[in-house]
Design a protein around this nucleic acid. Sequence first.
DNA 1: GTCTATATCCCGATAGAC
DNA 2: GTCTATCGGGATATAGAC
Lengths: 203, 203
Amino acid sequence: MSDNNPARTRIQRRNRKAILEAALEVFSAQGFRGATLDQIAAEAGLSKPNLLYYFASKEAIHAELLDGLLDTWLAPLRELNPDGTPQDEILGYVRRKLEMSRAMPRESRLFANEMLQGAPRLTEVLPKLKALVDEKAEIIRDWTRAGKLAPVDPHHLIFAIWALTQHYADFEVQVTAVLGPGHDPYDEAGAFLDMLFTRLLRI
Amino acid sequence: MSDNNPARTRIQRRNRKAILEAALEVFSAQGFRGATLDQIAAEAGLSKPNLLYYFASKEAIHAELLDGLLDTWLAPLRELNPDGTPQDEILGYVRRKLEMSRAMPRESRLFANEMLQGAPRLTEVLPKLKALVDEKAEIIRDWTRAGKLAPVDPHHLIFAIWALTQHYADFEVQVTAVLGPGHDPYDEAGAFLDMLFTRLLRI
DNA sequence: GTCTATATCCCGATAGAC
DNA sequence: GTCTATCGGGATATAGAC
């Protein structure tokens, strides 16, 4: 969540930004309970009380991180264009989502941490997520009905795209350990997923 | 990890089992730091000091849970038979792995929690995992070389199977929220994944 | 083996000087 | 705005009676 509040000074904006950056680093790696304000403060280069001068509580920092996350996370899906070429639209979505995993692995892990724990701080936004997925699933269903895509369950297709792209961020240690040195996981995944979804969806 | 130590009484075995069951419930839902001994003791129906009579520490309980987990988790992959029919072998692996997610979602989430945090308590076993995956990847590579499977990167094929099957356990709240009532996610996933891997691998 | 009581430490949050 | 010092709650682990 960006902070353009003009009532804040440059220093305030800079410190808030540093805190959120540090909090993302720590929360995504340790989970909410696993993270401590000491770690976040150290990472941000501030003292713990100073950190609490900018945010009311640990919970408030975490909430602000989560606040914009779902929208960011769903942006690539929103771009799915009903008037585009079906194959290209799906493949484009896969590529955007994989790029997002590469560019924002910490956000991916923050999100995964929440989901693993039953999404206690995201329950009220899950209906919004369902609405968007249902809308896009309907588009995909129309494409398959029109014979432009091989028949496929649209909801599980979307789950597959999520699972396959987020896996590279969320299970990064495992991927790295298994591939060994000398690999770019995301480059390889890009080629692999292109092929996978092409074969899955072609008529 | 089963406990057949004959030096232990029936009561001891029963209590240890109850503690590990309770700990699996709590650790998988809350992560290591998020879980408390109070929660585990309550879930197991024991007092907290009594719980620590059976296990030296919180860490020890967690370690014992993780101890057998990787082997259990990799068992379906171990069964991949180089002398079987390639398509059937892969599809069989996918089905076993999905069944495992259905039957053991808490173990899946315990594992995911560890991976998300960089696998601090599993780093020394990751090389073992790599060795098994490399061995099975070689089998798959032979199959594609022999023209029995469509060409595919074997490592990323295995990642895809992990990601697609574990997703239904690890992101269960999201899957349930998006599908809405009246769905059996695992039944639907079974059909979807059968189709996906059939289309991906057929010559 | 199981309990109550408690030691000890850590963490989130606040007080108050500067 | 930032700091040092500290409060108060909660968590792991232990002591010791039964």
